[in-house]
């Protein structure tokens, strides 16, 4: 500010003016934060734009709807980017189904279990066991997925899942979800191993969300004659709802994007079958298994799968937000 304005009587005394150091540091810091902040969006946008342009001819060749619902996948050998020259057939439905079904199996199995484990660790376990238990869960969350994949393929499937599937098929084989023949690897095997893989991360987050639930509200419920279970169900769960949805979304995101373990366990066929006991492929696993040998046209096909995968996760996220928002409004939840 100029000297003249400084001396106007209505101005604050000079002691309140910011010092030189802050006048410089503040804008610099602001710029730094702004640039790093916006760069996230730029990177994201660049990725989306690049992938979508690469994939675009495939959508033109197949039609977007045809791409999503087609159930045949044959890579063509064309080098041009003109959809008219394409020789392949690109129907992503089998892989969309594979991703959808394995992720759903995973979350449906993992979420209730995670809630029980988190509740046990927080409320029921002997106090000196709580810390070790929660560390163990957090450690499990860090186990690389290839380890889960190997353990699943070489131990769990032959020793546990195959016998279980055979029993399931003999008992409910008439139902379209459990039709034989039984192989071992397949949607259900992949889904179950995925459930085990996402269990720790969901448990860890849910446990943390439960742990920060205000004690005074729990006490209020206890003082009204609530049991531990009732406090859990009527006080802790409702106010942890958004956190639990968040944890599930993280788990679901991991299940949808999981590549290597699914690749090892899903059976890798390009055909699809509605039965959970059958083999198939998922979007992420398909990309991983095909990209090395892919022709330029084939790469575009895989890019298109990538776009679909991205859209898929976006839909899940938006749905989760809507769910949190709606339930929050219905429950009159001040926390949302």
């Amino acid at each position: 500010m100029s000297v003249i304005t400084d001396q106007k009587p209505q101005d604050p005394p000079p002691g309140l003016r910011s010092r030189k150091r802050r006048r410089v540091a503040d804008p610099a810091f602001r710029w730094f934060v702004t640039i790093t902040g916006t760069s996230v969006f730029i990177i994201l946008a660049a990725m989306v734009v690049r992938t979508t342009t690469e994939a675009w001819p495939i959508f033109q060749h197949q039609g977007f709807f045809g791409f999503l619902t087609g159930d045949r996948w044959v890579s063509g050998g064309s080098r041009s980017d003109d959809p008219a020259d394409f020789t392949g057939v690109y129907g992503a439905w089998p892989f969309i189904y594979g991703t959808l079904v394995t992720a759903l199996i995973a979350i449906v199995l993992a979420l209730p279990l995670a809630l029980c484990i988190a509740f046990y660790i927080n409320q029921l376990a002997p106090r000196r066991l709580r810390k070790p238990l929660s560390y163990t869960v957090e450690m499990l969350a860090a186990v690389p997925s290839i380890v889960f994949g190997m353990w699943g393929l070489f131990w769990l499937v032959p020793n546990v899942l195959r016998p279980f599937f055979e029993w399931l098929e003999s008992w409910a084989g008439g139902f379209f979800l459990f039709e034989g023949p039984v192989f071992g690897p397949g949607y259900l095997a992949a889904g179950i191993v995925l459930a085990i893989m996402i269990l720790p991360i969901i448990t860890a987050i849910v446990r943390e969300v439960i742990a920060v639930n205000p004690m005074d509200q729990q006490n209020a419920a206890y003082a009204l004659g609530a049991t531990r279970f009732e406090v859990m169900r009527k006080v802790i769960l409702p106010s942890s709802f958004s956190g639990i949805v968040g944890a599930s979304m993280l788990g679901l995101g991991r299940a949808v994007g999981e590549t290597i373990a699914v690749m090892m366990l899903i059976g890798s066929t390009k055909s699809w079958d509605s039965s959970l006991l059958q083999r198939g492929d998922s979007m992420a696993a398909l990309i991983a298994s095909l990209f090395k040998e892919a022709t330029p046209e084939g790469v575009r096909g895989l890019m298109a799968i990538g776009v679909a995968l991205f859209l898929f996760t976006m839909v899940i996220n938006v749905a989760a937000r809507l769910l949190v928002w709606r339930i929050g409004r219905v429950a009159g939840d001040a926390a949302v």
């Binding site: 419920a221 003082a223 009204l224």
Partner: peptide, 17 residues
């Protein structure tokens, strides 16, 4: 606790209506 109710130092209504 159902027979012997309690009111706490800090008001602690539930985040409900």
């Amino acid at each position: 606790r159902r027979r012997i109710g309690m009111v706490f130092q800090k008001p602690n209504p539930f985040p409900k209506s």
